[in-house]
Design a protein around this nucleic acid. Structure first.
Lengths: 132, 132
DNA sequence: TATATCTATATGCAGCGTGCAGATAGGAAA
DNA sequence: TTTCCTATCTGCACGCTGCATATAGATATA
């Protein structure tokens, strides 16, 4: 999930498979301004929510999915320049989802804090397992 | 990825597909004491890392995977009572992985804090999108 | 004119991880 | 004998992701 290495050799430390917060980040961006997919991808890549660059195909699929779920609505924009683009905006349901994400991530924050507290605790004391 | 509800009706608020922190939690538990799978599952279900009860099959598969990756080692324990059970313990690599998880989750903590700060900010001001 | 590049969106495919259901098996209680 | 608890594992289907690729308008370059 981080993309630093492509073919991990046996014995190499595996990457931490933490998912990206793409969906809540999209909701957050669209709560401020409506935007099209390409624009969102650029903004997402500038934000700290993602470790590396996002796969564009994945983002477009997330957008379609979110629209199917009723969180977003879209309409085609045939501008004067460039190809047509899908303008996404948040729905009321999407705004609710953003609120729910905030609560979920607040809870996750506490979970991680608990984890890190326990981690630091066992790091101070001696380890019980006999690995060598 | 969500699994909390079976057939979400259209229009229902979708669940937040945040993955569980099962793997780092296992590393944390095994850094303190070696244990077998069933025991770990019970402990994990008591911890705050998981929202609901974990699927036992999933946990056993995670354990096998982590052993294949070299993070854990195991041996069969033929005790006097009950069926034989696999005793898992942390390897040196597993301990490194735990450290890496701590760093990853520390970074994730900051990401979530950034998200929540932005969220509260837009909640205070007027929304720019014209949904409703 | 032909080619390459940037913008913009989308599909096909393989692979991984999960959850649910169920199999297996020892041992204890009814 | 049946049931239940402990303990581990497999099969299957589904969903999500990343990579490669297709499409297409528009603009720059040779």
């Amino acid at each position: 999930m981080n993309g630093e290495m492509e073919g991990r050799a046996a014995g190499e430390p595996p990457v931490m498979p933490l998912e990206k917060l793409t969906q809540p980040a999209i909701l957050l961006l669209l709560a401020q301004n409506k935007a099209h997919g390409y624009e969102l991808i650029q903004k997402l890549n500038q934000m700290e929510f993602t470790d590396g660059d996002l796969d564009t195909a994945t983002v477009y699929r997330i957008l379609r999915r979110m629209e199917q779920e009723g969180l977003l609505a879209s309409n085609w924009e045939h501008g004067e320049f460039g190809p047509a683009r899908r303008q996404y905006r948040l729905t009321g349901e999407g705004l609710n989802s953003l609120d729910e994400w905030a609560r979920t991530l607040q809870a996750r924050l506490r979970q991680i804090e608990t984890f890190l507290t326990l981690y630091r605790h066992i790091k101070k004391g001696p380890l019980q397992n006999g690995q060598g």
